[in-house]
Design a protein around this nucleic acid. Sequence first.
RNA 1: GCGGAUGUAGCUCAGCUGGUUAGAGCGUCGGUUUGUGGUACCGAAUGUCGCCGGUUCGAAUCCGGUCAUCCGCCCCA
Length: 438
Amino acid sequence: MDLKPTKPLSGFIELLPAQQRCFDECARRMRGVLQIAGFSLLDLPAIERAEVLSDKDNWDEIETQMFLFQYGDTKMGLRYDGTVGLSRFVAGHLNDLVFPFRASQFSKRYRGERRQRGRYREFYQMDMDIMGINTLSINYDAEIISVIQQALNSVSEFIGDNYVRIGSRPFWDALFDYLKLDSRQRKEVFVLIDKRDKMGEEEFALGLSDTLKNKKVENEIKSVFISGYEKFLNKSDKLDAAISELTGFMEKLKQFGVKNAEIDLSIARGLAYYTGLVFEFKLTDHPELQTAAGGGRYADLVEKFSKTKIIGVGAAIGFSRIFVALMESGAIDLSRWERPVDVAILVMGDDNLQYALTVESALRAAKIPSVAYLDTDKKFKNQIEYADKIMAKYSMIIGEDEVKNKVVSVKDMATGEQQTLSVADAIKLVTGGAKNDN
RNA sequence: GCGGAUGUAGCUCAGCUGGUUAGAGCGUCGGUUUGUGGUACCGAAUGUCGCCGGUUCGAAUCCGGUCAUCCGCCCCA
């Protein structure tokens, strides 16, 4: 009989136990940051109606980007980000929620795209969004950035330091107005700006001239990246407004305690739904990784679900992406996550099982991760080998003598020292040892 | 969808220009006297050499196709 494959599908992530423990610890810390900051942690459906996920009605086209399927007459798909589902949720629960509404999701996302380095078809992202009705102060944009930085900092021992760069959609809109670009040109130029990092100066210039065919306009756009935004002051009211919003925002970020922030107008965030300021986080120690987190303000996303004007600012941390990349490169030290339990209980024969289980219960009641080796008929050698392999700090040996005297033989697996103790003293030894270890 | 590379034991791979029972290391399991591991030694199991076809007396090895994987592009939160 042919055996079935053991490898997961391409683009799907499987973590080994130690990796998973480390991942879970990171997730716990980041969720903790969000919860303390007053964000409701939501767990929305992974499957949405196709019409919720996409406005495009060209099934073939969107199928290459999403996992789609049909059940009866209902076309549906797996969520590829968290914000679309959240918009639907908020629009559907306007009466139940308090605004500004603060929500966070740490959940799996799905993309149908082809495998590529650092791209997965199933991955975790942590989203955080703040949504307001009719208005939403730009203070919230600053807060979102601050909270992301806190979340990233909470796992800095694994991912290192971070910095953030701020871009502005309104700046480009105003500049395009000023330069009198038509809508096709705006779109194409914007794509070029977004890809500028990847393509390099020459190709960027070429692309601009292809689209614009106007040296003067091309040079104006290029000059943004050379001499910055200042030269566009006093050119139009819209430009002035966009620039002062941006510079004012940098002051706000300081008030919110954000570190390592700077303006970078090449931050465009693709053609996504953003309408205001946008931002991207990168990891200082890992420049090879692409964006660690990104987001911005969106004004129109909820429009398709509700006539109530809802404005949001949100961001996502692509945590699977950075975690897996850092793990594979060896940047994350997993050695301290290899140990599933602190204590292995070795049981010399089924006759001693009852007592062994009471010891196990006592350990667990004392919050000491512990596990009994239940193949009680296995030789001692096999049992202690198991204790060694799971890297238990201590083995507690339970045989006839221990049962008779109501004690346990505790072996320190690192030093090999062994002593006979009451269960209470054994627990004291283990908990004391744990303190020294960390 | 396009281009490049790769597909041999659970894993990482070696098998040169085709030659007869397909290898190593790691891992797994067992053993080196039956309550003491991490080292050492001995031993065992596991492969239709991705799949299909062709060339040949003979193919893991050459050729074609196909599938899969990886890298890049396209696309893109």
